Simulated scan of single mutants.
Amino acid sequence: MARAHPTPAEIEDALHATLAALEEIAHGGRVTVGEMIARLGGRAYGPLMVLLGLLVVLPTGMIPGVPALVGLGALALGLQMLTAHPSPWLPRRLREIELGEQRVARMVARWLPRLMQIRRVLRPRMTLIAEGAIGRQIAGLAAGLAGLIMVPLGFIPFLPFVLGLALVIIGLALAARDGLAMLAGCAVFVPAGWILLGRLLMLIG
C-alpha cells in the first residue's frame, strides 16, 4: 500500500513540536536533547534535523562547543538513516545534554512565525527523492556530511551557520516529502564547500 502524503496539519504538528522545544530553551527553560526526541515521537528524523540545524543557525551556534555537539548529533542521525534505523537514537551523553539560553529569546521569537509559515510553501512534490528509503538515504548522506565537516571544522566562521541551514531545509523537506526543497537543501552544501575551500587556501598560502 502506498504511503499517504502528510497533510498540512501533520507538517505543522511536526514543526510545532520542534519549535516548542526551542522556544522553551530560548525562555530560560532546561530541556535535554533526549526530551526533545521524546516529544517528536516516531516522526523525529526530519524535525530533529531542523532542531539541530537551528541550534547552529541561531546565536546558540556561537557558544563554544555547540557546533561540535550538533555535528556529532547530525553524524549519528545520518548513520541511522543510512542504515534504516526505525527511529532516532543518540548516545546517552548527547541525550542528557541540557540546553538553556535566555539571550536567544528574541531571535527565536523572530524565527517561530517564519518557520510556521513554511507550511504554506512545503507540499509533496518530486516525492521520489523525498520519501521512503530514497528520501532517508539522501537526508542521511547530507546529515552525515554536515557532521563530518562540523565536528573538526566548526570553528571556521560562517561554516556552521551554512551547514545548519542545510540541515534545517533538508529536515523540513523530509517531514513534508518535498523533493524540490530537498534539492534546495543539498544545494546549500555548495557555499559550504566554497567557505571550506577558501579557508584551506588561506592556510596553505
Rank of each mutant, 00 (worst) to 15 (best):
E10Y: 02
A76I: 08
G135T: 05
T60Y: 07
V66E: 07
T83C: 09
R3G: 00
V33Q: 03
G42F: 00
G179T: 01
V190N: 05
L69N: 10
I134H: 08
E101V: 09
T32C: 06
T60I: 05
G144S: 15
P8M: 10
G41A: 03
E98S: 13
L72C: 07
P160C: 05
M126A: 08
A184C: 11
F189E: 13
L145F: 12
L19Q: 03
R3K: 09
G46W: 03
R123Y: 06
L180M: 13
R119H: 04
G198W: 10
H27A: 01
E96V: 00
P6W: 00
V108T: 02
I134M: 14
I63H: 05
R92N: 06
L51C: 06
P152W: 10
G147F: 13
G193S: 09
L141G: 15
L77D: 05
P152T: 13
L90R: 04
A166Q: 07
Q102P: 01
L15D: 04
V31M: 03
L148K: 07
R177G: 02
M182A: 03
V33S: 01
L19E: 08
A4N: 00
P157Y: 09
L54I: 03
R43K: 14
A68V: 09
D13Q: 14
P59H: 12
E96K: 12
R106K: 14
H16T: 12
I97S: 07
P91Q: 09
R106N: 08
L159C: 05
I195D: 12
G140E: 04
I97D: 01
G71T: 11
H85L: 14
G46F: 08
L99A: 12
A17Q: 14
A44P: 08
